[in-house]
Design a protein around this nucleic acid. Structure first.
Length: 424
RNA sequence: GUGAGUGUAGCUCAGGUGGUUAGAGCACCAGGUUGUGGCCCUGGGGGUCGCCGGUUCAAGUCCGGUCAUUCACCCCA
């Protein structure tokens, strides 16, 4: 029986991985620009962390977690999202006593037992940024600007909302529930259940009758307490000032319980039904929920598979770094030995070098060198061994250049040739 | 968890109404005199037709189940 990758997971073959590395480099550079340092946390955590962090009502916690017991009977869970881990680390290392704000980012896999489809996997990678200890809307504007700087060349729009703090949100929910109760006959079955637990999710429903019924429901932004309204207004004017485009969207409701105040999503219409490329918001109550010092905080997660889809849709190509490379084609056993040694020395000099590993004839070796896309090749046979001179061939132009048969000479010549090429 | 579409070679796909040894293109390997790749020519390897069962003298082809995959719902990055 053939064994394949588990459902909803995938392999990245070397060709594909290059795109990912280029993207990751771009993300690290963007994060550095905004003063976010990389954090790495474990792939699994105590199940309790996610139960307390994300709230027990959501689908993710209720039925999508990869939870298991280890040999000592501890209940552990493969991380379904990054924020809880970041908050746990913040608390665990006493970072509230460190220089605040504490700004960190991660590029890490998340695990959710979902039914796979386009842009949705059971293991997916998120770039996330989190900021702890910042209470001002400048922090919201900054972190949104970070996400925007990454997504700005794509067909992605920023949807912004505020769902209020722990003071005004319950009032809003009460109003909304009352309002929806009057129209309950228009709601779908799932929305009727949502009405109880989290009426704000009804605003998000795509069923036509629900959308129609909710179309002029009271919006959270109109029911904020004076503090939240003021905060949201200041955030909007900061974004205006920075030239970050956004639309107010009262349907933006995040799925995790820890969100308070600012919430946002970057949405693409080009990548299928799973259009949320990036989503986040404020979670001022989370560190307290987790038993740590109450700390204002905010963050976002960005799905890299979806980001790559959006980049593909827009035809964005990430640049590949070009380094000089050479293929040495030996003819005969003596030459093969020399080529192996030369390759070894060339690599120590920082030159990408390859030689025959399959015992192939010259023609087959040249084909191999061609298909690998290396820049240069050189045949090494009896003549070269006798004279100590080789011909370096530019595989793109066919030009050859004589060169000494030592690793140092080859490396030097390659660097000269490569630089000439760049100027062209 | 629900719905629909699709499973034939490494990849993309042909294989009317069931009928001998299942094909093509690309890719791969070897050769076209052990001194040079891309083009061309010749040859070669590689398939339990996703899996299990059923109907039939006979199933890649029809039926059922199952698994996988794709898209959508739901949910979310």
């Amino acid at each position: 029986m053939k064994i394949s990758a588990p459902r909803g997971t995938y392999d990245l073959l070397p060709n594909e991985t290059r795109r990912w590395q280029a993207l990751e480099n771009k993300l690290r550079a963007a994060a550095a620009l905004y003063g976010y340092g990389e954090i790495r946390f474990p792939v699994f955590e105590h199940t309790e962390l996610f139960l307390r962090g994300m709230g027990e009502t959501g689908d993710v916690v209720q039925k999508e977690m990869y939870t298991f017991s280890d040999k000592d009977g501890r209940s552990l869970t493969l991380r379904p999202e990054g924020t809880a881990s970041a908050a746990r680390a913040f608390i665990e290392h006493g970072l509230h006593m460190s220089l605040l704000p504490f700004k960190c980012f991660y590029i890490a896999p998340n695990f959710r037992y979902e039914k796979p489809q386009k842009g949705r996997y059971r293991q997916h990678v998120q770039f996330g940024a989190e900021c702890f200890g910042a209470s001002e809307p400048q922090a919201d504007a900054e972190i949104i600007a970070l996400a925007q700087s990454i997504l700005q060349d794509l067909d992605v729009s920023l949807h912004l909302n505020s769902i209020g703090c722990k003071k005004c949100r319950p009032d809003y929910q009460k109003n909304l529930r009352a309002w929806l109760d009057d129209r309950v006959s228009h709601l779908c079955e799932t929305c009727k259940t949502r009405l109880e637990r989290n009426p704000m999710r009804v605003l998000d429903c795509k069923v036509e009758t629900c959308a129609a019924a909710a179309s002029d429901a009271p919006a959270a932004v109109d029911c904020l307490c004076p503090e939240c309204a003021d905060f949201f207004g200041r955030l909007e004017s900061l974004l205006d000032e920075m030239g970050v485009p956004y639309v107010r969207d009262s349907r933006i409701v995040r799925g995790f319980d820890y969100y308070t105040g600012t919430v946002f999503e970057f949405i693409s219409r080009e990548i299928g039904a799973q259009g949320a490329v990036c989503a986040g918001g404020r979670y001022d109550g989370l560190t307290g929920e987790l038993g740590g010092p109450p700390t204002p905080a905010l963050g976002f997660g960005m799905g890299l598979e979806r980001l790559l889809l959006a980049m593909e849709a827009k035809g964005v190509i990430l640049p590949d770094e070009a380094t000089p490379s050479v293929y040495l084609a030996p003819m005969g056993a003596a030459a093969a030995k020399i080529c192996a040694k030369l390759c070894h020395e060339l690599r120590r000099l920082g030159v990408t070098a390859e030689t025959d590993l399959c015992g192939r004839g010259l023609k087959a070796q040249m084909k191999y060198a061609d298909k690998r896309g290396g820049h240069f090749s050189a045949v090494i046979g009896d003549t070269e061994l006798e004279t100590g001179r080789i011909n370096l061939k530019d595989m793109r132009t066919g030009d050859v250049m004589g060169c000494g048969a030592s690793a140092a000479d080859i490396a030097k010549t390659l660097h000269i040739l490569s630089e000439v090429e760049l100027e062209c």
